[in-house]
Simulated assay, not measured.
Amino acid sequence: FQVMSLSKLRKLSETGVTFRSHIDGARYEMSPERSIEIQGLLDSDIQMQLDECTALPAKPKEIERAMELSLRWAERCKTAFGDQPGKAMFGIVQGGDSAVMRVRSAQALAAMDLKGYAVGGLAVGEPQAVMLEMLDITCPELPADRPRYLMGVGTPDDILKSVARGIEMFDCVMPTRAGRHGLAYTRRGKINLRNARHADDPRPLDEESDCPAARDYSRAYLHHLARSQESLGAMLLTWNNLSYYQKLMQDIRAAIEAKAFETRAAEISEGWARGDLPAL
């Protein structure tokens, strides 16, 4: 649970977060204990600690304050979570773009002996290079036998490069949000179906895809749907994007099992670099 998106409607204290609904202004309080309670009521298999995610760029003192508060909340969440067979509570590493704060956060969470660890506060405005640098610093400090989850990430390229640094789990709105705006992710990279070059193109997005949205519909039709803002266009491109992301993760898992991740990652990146088919 993160509170950055409610920054204009919330107040932070040691106790937790108080915020007002953006719909009717109703006041709510969220403590670490209440956060865990709600996730338990939802029967969540993985329950996340309450934390404060700091938008970047931020001043060092602000990064340290938020990181230390998140650590204290993590301890309270761990106590509230207790022992729930078959379920896990993840701590969330914070520390902004500070190497020192990231290490301190990761080490303190590792000492709590949690069932899993997330890396939060990245992909919040900083360049990809900064995100990867923080992963290079953070991942070695986390237990190798526990899952590592990078929150809110990301593009296919972000995923590929993060896996190379030890990340195993991701979540992001990107494939669905992109689909709603006419953007398709494919093995040839990103394709903007709103562009005029697709208006009379009878070819599919990807003739080799297992996804019907990518294989069985012409680019011209998808272009028409996107430009007309037909809901079917958003549905088909979202279908394509989710299918592509799943195929990407399947490729990554298979390559890791075959001890060929670096080779496969290079092949995938080369496919993106070559780009889309030439226009007709």
Rank of each mutant, 00 (worst) to 15 (best):
M101W: 14
R102I: 00
R104V: 01
S105R: 00
S105M: 01
A108S: 08
L109K: 10
A110W: 04
A111Q: 14
M112R: 14
D113K: 05
L114G: 08
L114Q: 10
G116S: 14
Y117F: 15
V119L: 11
G120Y: 07
G121E: 05
V124M: 10
G125N: 01
P127A: 04
Q128E: 12
A129T: 11
V130R: 15
V130N: 06
V130F: 03
L132K: 14
T138V: 06
C139N: 03
C139K: 00
R146G: 06
L150W: 13
M151F: 14
T155M: 04
I159S: 11
K161R: 14
S162C: 01
A164N: 03
A164W: 02
R165H: 13
G166P: 00
E168A: 05
D171H: 04
C172E: 12
C172D: 01
V173G: 06
M174L: 11
M174W: 12
T176C: 15
R177I: 08
A184Q: 09
Y185M: 09
T186G: 14
T186H: 10
T186W: 06
R188C: 12
K190I: 14
K190E: 12
K190A: 13
L193P: 03
R194M: 14
N195I: 00
R197I: 13
R197K: 14
H198W: 15
H198M: 06
D200T: 11
P202Y: 11
P204M: 08
L205F: 02
L205P: 04
E207K: 08
D210I: 11
P212C: 03
S218E: 04
S218A: 11
R219E: 04
R219T: 08
A220L: 08
L222D: 01
H223I: 09
H224E: 13
